[in-house]
């Protein structure tokens, strides 16, 4: 189905109190590709990412105008169940936050919430997604020990597996490698390249080289505006806007 996992943003503006963090953004995110959001820090990258699964919701004083359409449905509409929207997307944050429970329970948390009680099915889910995140071999002997005992790199892969286990179609990554050592970062990047066969992946990063390694499609944000977007090759090889050129050549960062 072509429309699955399809995110479309129309005239999105986000205000924190009086400050406008995002200014009138409209863009279509391509399916089953890795879309990378780049731009200098404080330009609204994370805000844009969080607007996709309504994590902007809980904190007060935030106003959102415009639309974010997921599968054709405006997620900021009045009758939208936010839990259902969020289930469609897995989130990787800057620093891994394993839930305060065992490795097994971390993965099983989501499926259990959504009603899966069958022990065998849960076992299968846990194994399957730990393998997908290539963590299975390292943890299969200690599934019931606390997730907080894993290394940071392992924790981030655990969070990836945890996110995949609720059956999303989209993966959101908010600078997902920024807290990791180079080896673990590489590990995660490899997973992303594999996962794009099945998932639509959106990643925020401030590392230009990482963006070049991963991106199929690029959004360049500057001061809350979407300056330029397009296929990775076009943006990196032949940016149209002066400001994009300067950013890509490393003059501004």
């Amino acid at each position: 189905m072509e429309s699955k996992g399809h995110i479309k943003v129309e005239n999105l503006s986000v205000f924190y109190g009086k400050d406008q963090a995002l200014k009138d953004i409209s863009v279509k995110i391509p399916n089953k590709k890795i879309t990378v959001i780049i731009g200098p820090s404080g330009c609204g990258k994370t805000t844009l990412l969080k607007s996709f699964n309504r994590l902007l919701d809980p904190s007060d004083n935030i106003k959102v105008t415009g639309q974010v359409l997921v599968d054709g449905e405006d997620i900021y509409g009045p009758n939208v169940e936010v839990t259902r929207i969020r289930k469609k997307m897995g989130l990787l944050s800057q620093k891994p936050y394993p839930l305060p429970m065992s490795i097994y329970d971390n993965i099983a948390y989501g499926p259990r919430l959504h009603g899966e009680r069958n022990k065998h099915k849960l076992d299968r889910i846990v194994e399957h997604f730990l393998k997908t995140a290539s963590l299975w071999e390292e943890v299969k002997a200690k599934l019931h020990s606390p997730a907080s005992h894993l290394s940071v790199g392992q924790q981030q892969r655990l969070c990836l597996a945890r996110g995949l286990a609720v059956g999303p179609e989209i993966i959101l990554g908010d600078e997902p490698t920024s807290a990791l050592d180079p080896k673990s970062s590489q590990h995660i990047e490899k997973r992303f390249l594999e996962l794009k066969q099945q998932y639509t992946i959106i990643i925020v990063t401030h590392i230009l080289r990482q963006a070049k390694r991963l991106a199929d499609y690029v959004l360049f944000l500057y001061m809350g505006r979407l300056i330029e977007h397009g296929p990775a090759d076009d943006i990196f090889e032949d940016p149209q806007e002066e400001i994009t050129k300067e950013y890509i050549r490393g003059i501004i960062s």
Partner: peptide, 18 residues
């Protein structure tokens, strides 16, 4: 309790109650 930890749970589709 760190907000990102709560966000992680929300992102998995948990309600605030859960």
């Amino acid at each position: 309790v760190p907000q990102p930890l709560m966000d992680a749970s929300y992102a998995l589709g948990a309600t605030r109650f859960e």
